[in-house]
């Protein structure tokens, strides 16, 4: 399966989440907070905390830990 993360092509496996792909790529944070601009990545890992938000195929605020990657997905993070 091919996906794009911040414009770079990656291969992904069925069952892999967006967060799984980002962490496997060595990234531990990909967003900053509105107030102090602090970095955020995965915290709860099960869809509760909303720290890990990304944009998927143009739709913002998708929980990276909950969304499974699909063929051709275009993932954009706030902090590429």
């Amino acid at each position: 399966m091919r996906v794009t993360i911040d414009g770079v092509q990656h291969s992904a496996t069925p069952g892999q989440t967006v967060a799984g792909a980002l962490l496997a790529d060595g990234r531990t944070s990909w967003r900053t907070t509105r107030g102090a601009g602090k970095p955020r990545g995965v915290f709860c890992g099960i869809g509760v905390c909303f720290d890990c938000l990304v944009t998927v195929n143009g739709v913002a605020d998708v929980r990276a830990c909950q969304r499974l990657l699909a063929e051709g997905d275009d993932i954009r993070t706030e902090e590429p």
Binding site: P39, R40, F43, G45
Partner: peptide, 11 residues
Amino acid sequence: DLPGVYTAGAA
């Protein structure tokens, strides 16, 4: 809130 701190469930 630092990246690298996870819940046990996330790990």
